[in-house]
Amino acid sequence: MIFGVFTVILFIIFLIFHLSDPRRIINGFLFNMFCCSLLVSGIYFAVTTPIVIFRVMILIPLFIVLLFLSTFGILALCVGLFLNARILMKKEGRRFSNCLTLILGLGLLLLLLFSVVNPERFLSPNLRPLFAGGSLIVFYFFFSLTNFLSAYFLYQFNKPKYNQDFIIVLGSGLIRDKVPPLLASRIDKAIDFYRKQASAAYPPTIIFSGGQGPDENLSEAEAMQKYAIEKGIPPEHTLKEDRSVNTYQNMLFSKQIMDSLKNGKYNSIFTTNNFHLFRAGLYAKQTGLKSQGIGSKTAFYYWPNAMIREYIAILVMNRKRHIIVVGTILAFSIIITIISFLVS
């Protein structure tokens, strides 16, 4: 009974946080806590219930899943990451940014090898606190990653209402002064929302946000606007923000335009590719923009590498907190190691 009550409480807390603002990583942590509590509650119910069929239905599938994960889970994940890296580099080129799944696969394979060899047994007892500290740091980043992935996943289901005054389309670069497929998908998503809202209520204004790169003859905003007009969007329902050079500035300069037109009283959303959705939402929050995002589809093979890149970018955004945590763990490990040497 107590497990069930605790699970319900966790679910209510998660809902409060998520519904108040889905652009927070703590939502992922709360969702993971709820899922763990639900799992424990299910196991407890299966063990204590007198109904045998319920025990079989819950415990046997759970045992099979846990057995597979404990024996082949990491190895299967490594194989999947290697295959993804091969497909991605074949389709997108052998750039370093396309090698992240390969690097992660090698890292996981190394961790698997470490767990089998157990190098701690070769260390002096005095040095084991350092090894424990390193293991704790790895666990910390794994914990951080799981929270990010859950928050990232939950944000994909954001469904804004058809009462928006503005739609911000985030730029992503031109190719030979033309809108490439990746950017076109963002504009098409905005056009689709524009048409649905126009038929249900009133047409919003689309703000195309993106400056001019050093190798471009026109701004992204101008190229995007032309693309949308060719798709049938009335020019009077479009605006250009052509100063920004990154996502933060996309949000900041677009907010300035909307504030000047509506005196801060408006509803807005932004469109980008779904892999970029959550981080863009964090930048919107940093600028004081209440906008939520909707994401355009991305090829499935592109997702794993893109998610790793997004996680690294969010680590950099919150680098002060991570430096403090990692620094604290290292400091304690070093202090304990020094003490152990002095005592021995």
Rank of each mutant, 00 (worst) to 15 (best):
I13M: 12
F14E: 08
L15P: 00
F31R: 06
F31G: 02
C35T: 14
G42A: 11
Y44S: 12
Y44V: 15
F45L: 15
T48L: 11
R55G: 15
P61R: 05
L62I: 12
I64P: 03
I64G: 03
V65R: 05
V65H: 06
L66R: 07
F68R: 00
T71P: 00
F72S: 05
F72Q: 09
L77W: 03
C78Y: 01
C78E: 14
V79T: 08
R86A: 14
R86K: 12
M89K: 12
R95T: 14
F96A: 15
L100W: 00
L100C: 02
L102R: 03
I103S: 03
L104T: 14
G105T: 04
G105I: 11
L108E: 06
L109R: 00
L111D: 12
L112P: 00
L112T: 12
L113W: 11
F114E: 14
F114Y: 12
F114C: 14
N118A: 11
P119W: 09
E120S: 13
R121C: 09
R121L: 10
R121P: 03
S124P: 07
P129W: 06
F131V: 11
G134T: 01
S135N: 14
I137S: 03
L145D: 00
N147W: 11
N147D: 14
F148T: 11
Q156T: 13
F157K: 10
F157H: 09
K161Y: 00
Y162R: 05
Y162A: 04
V169P: 03
L170C: 08
I175H: 10
D177R: 06
S199L: 10
A200H: 10
A201I: 02
Y202L: 06
T205C: 08
F208D: 09
G213M: 03
D215A: 10
E216S: 10
E222N: 07
A223D: 11
A228Y: 07
I229P: 02
P235G: 03
P235L: 12
H237F: 12
L239W: 05
E241I: 08
E241R: 05
R243L: 13
V245G: 11
N246K: 04
Y248W: 08
Q256S: 09
G264K: 09
G264T: 06
S268L: 01
T271H: 02
N273A: 04
F278I: 09
R279Y: 01
A284T: 11
T287N: 03
G288N: 04
S291V: 02
Q292K: 06
G293K: 03
G295I: 02
M307Q: 04
M307I: 15
M307T: 15
E310P: 05
V316C: 01
R319P: 00
K320R: 13
G327E: 06
I329H: 01
A331S: 13
F332Y: 05
I334C: 09
F341Q: 07
L342T: 14
